[in-house]
Design a binder for these strands. Sequence first.
DNA 1: CTGTTAGCGCCTTCAA
DNA 2: TTGAAGGCGCTAACAG
Lengths: 348, 348
Amino acid sequence: MTLSQVAKEAGVAASTASLVLAGRADELRISATAQERVRDAARRLGYRPNALSTGLRTGTTRTLGFVSDSVASSQLAGEMIRGAIESARARGYMVFVGETAGDAHLERDLLDAMFDRQVDGVVLATMMTHARAIPVEATRMPTVLLNIEPTDDADYVRVLPDEVAAGADAARLLVDSGHRRIHLIGVGDDPATAHPFGLAAAQRLRGALTVFAETGQQIVSARPTVQWLPPEGFRLVSEVLDSGAEVDALLCLNDRLAMGAYQALQERGVRVPDDVSVLSFDDTSFARWLRPGLTTFAFPQRALGRAAADELIDLIERGAATVGSSAPTAAHLVPLPLRLRASVADRT
Amino acid sequence: MTLSQVAKEAGVAASTASLVLAGRADELRISATAQERVRDAARRLGYRPNALSTGLRTGTTRTLGFVSDSVASSQLAGEMIRGAIESARARGYMVFVGETAGDAHLERDLLDAMFDRQVDGVVLATMMTHARAIPVEATRMPTVLLNIEPTDDADYVRVLPDEVAAGADAARLLVDSGHRRIHLIGVGDDPATAHPFGLAAAQRLRGALTVFAETGQQIVSARPTVQWLPPEGFRLVSEVLDSGAEVDALLCLNDRLAMGAYQALQERGVRVPDDVSVLSFDDTSFARWLRPGLTTFAFPQRALGRAAADELIDLIERGAATVGSSAPTAAHLVPLPLRLRASVADRT
DNA sequence: CTGTTAGCGCCTTCAA
DNA sequence: TTGAAGGCGCTAACAG
């Protein structure tokens, strides 16, 4: 089904049909009958414009690329992608998705393949290394950085989770509910030397420390680890309990550590939240199924994806004219919403 | 950078450059020097062919569509998509991803949008309703069904998890390791009335029953539920324990039920696997972090995605000529591999 | 061995 | 108000 077939069926020229179908008929005063005939023919023949052709002609494809460095294990990636797809779809865009597993070569290939297909722009996302250089391939087209802090100084539109605020919120929640003896699980007490991967550890810690300072609290202990996994949470919390220190609350840097914490607590007969409160980050799938339900700040995967796609489409539709012209754009920060469940007691 | 610019730079005609760059130069005996000059110019100018143009001309885009009905909560979807993308990429294809959340209208729109962009084919996947009708939109292009049994009788290429075999494997594992008093958690004892959503329950049950029959075993109890979630697992296993029945092993229909089972067991001080073995399906992210690690048959998400993309590309490259011609294709069954951890004891 | 020509499907002046 | 013509970038016959 091509436009000229529709035109023929309607008894008009292809250009006329084009105008009608593009909604510019009134503007150019095409006769009502002609319009009717065209629309009718199009419907009857099930006409759908060939996007390749339109793209070739107009230089725009209503197509986005989404490239992330995620690997099999990361549950986070999936939701981000889906958020992006959802937003894009709502605005009439389709998205190509690619994954690099951290392979720079693959990333280049992917970006090339998308560029070849004339995507209108790409979002570059990361699940692993949060601070990194941006490949030159990306600079050929409008680009939005998702969950990445660029190491170079070019002015990219960035979308990031507001980890600092989440850290602060967590600390405030604990302090406000009367917890005094707080232990940090998964990070030391110095933001500068926090977790080598990702900015999450350092930023969550920074936010928390600010609030602790403001309220005159002291952290009892802060235990770093490189792997944020249940066995590590188990180990660290066992250490805390063995140390004989008093503990009102455990602030775990993510849910997997918290899962390990639950196991260690349970094994020693320490009750959550009656004896010890547990607060965490991410809202991983199992958080609500732990007993008692884990109170946690949800990593806003889907919202991040949505925001990235929206920023990108804004950028595209605003026109590439503006690129690099204006003042450095502030990062778009997405909050981590609290999922209030049953693991934090009120001790006031 | 267009082909004609490269050709001009190399001092040849565009068609010559085209042939050289398409690798058909030797075949058509283009002089070595001309080839050299073309390749050189292309490299120097950073030439990349416009895929839109090529697609328009050749009628093929090396682009796939992937449409699934998954919703936010399903972790399964993400991995399937990624498997598909991975396979596609390896064969030079890019993929458009879309999600419908079960909305038939959205599905139509998505399929249309992909069709408009001239995808070479689509995979239609489902996470929810495993038996369903296929929308007519799909029939305009090569289609592979992933995790779907079509209710109409058209002859589609299908990729499915081998749930029956997994059920049989699970039963055999239990029987072979000396378990006699086995309870089923999450499904009744009649495949015909099993779980309304999905084929998994009925098929896993069918496989298991076959083996139990072969080995002369009797199931002690089989408890159905509509929601395969931890609280239900907790409830059902509590019932089992309260009933006073003897129990060697719990065969849970998925990991979330098993998680609830662990909680119920733990609360009553029943040890896994010393007192009771637990076996399950899916290998959800937390399965390996439960204590003891949960032995389970992994739902092969990624492999399913890979298989679907591969089947689709085979279908496309074999040529649409064959469509509907041959005998009904057998479904491509993907096994559920066993993840042997510590929750099943050897009681022989 | 290489260049000319035509056309994939669409949009957009420009003339009529 | 409508139609004819040209071109987006590429490939494939067909001449030379």
